[in-house]
Amino acid sequence: MSTTLPSTPESPETGTARVKRGMAEQLKGGVIMDVVTPEQAKIAEDAGAVAVMALERVPADIRKDGGVARMSDPDMIEGIIDAVSIPVMAKSRIGHFVEAQVLQSLGVDYIDESEVLTPADEVNHSDKWSFTTPFVCGATNLGEALRRIAEGAAMIRSKGEAGTGNVVEAVRHLRQIKNEIARLRGYDNHELYAAAKELRAPYELVKEVAELGKLPVVLFSAGGVATPADAALMRQLGAEGVFVGSGIFKSGDPAKRAAAIVKATTFYDDPKIIADASRNLGEAMVGINCDTLPEAERYANRGW
């Protein structure tokens, strides 16, 4: 286990780093699906999702509608919690620690401090150590991932570009994180100090990553997965699981596509199974060419 964890308590203790990070370990190899209603949450659970992300609008609709995107209505989140037996996650705005406090009080199992919502603070992310509920955060590179972990994130997802149905940014960000980890592996002790400075991340975390050859928390991929092959691609590139947002409920046959993505995520290295899972799924979400996205509409640029 990680060397940065505090010593283990003798009496029952909630909200420890091990309990928070351990929760994400249980999700590995699985698919976490965006849902906006209890009915969608049931479809996701039926399809084999390991957890659902409760939100008001899927990212594709947030893009279309514009305006400020915020935490969801507590009634909607509670409706989803009541509808399924699997873990329920929900999103707070970056730096909006009161939204996070509300989500914790509702009993969600994970909070996503997410760039998909409109940031509430352009300097600071929330202090995630001060919560019992664990946090997942997005990252486009290793330094960003380690800054989030330093703030208490117990799980990282590569950001990709949510709501586009285009996997290109997910690939870019995951490759970036994996490449930077591989480079650290080759550094000697002298070089790690300069590496920490360059990554703008705490030296202890940089050293830990260099030793482990991986992040000290679970790494999923997000932002643009629309097909079973997309999910398997992210797994083969090193993601320990995938978030699928608009890709499922913006497609022609959500139940079928959701089940197919679950199969392809487990058998990510078996092209025959991925082929079978990919048959007759109906329309995929239309998708957006990321080259034509104006800078202001790139969610991955939010957070730092």
């Binding site: 308590p9 009496s11 909630t14 909200g15 420890t16 914790q104 009993g107 199992d109 509920t133």
Partner: peptide, 15 residues
């Protein structure tokens, strides 16, 4: 009994 101790906020460690 599944999820018998509660949700994630009730997750804990002990000897």
């Amino acid at each position: 009994r599944r999820n018998a101790f509660g949700r994630q906020n009730e997750s804990f460690e002990t000897a």
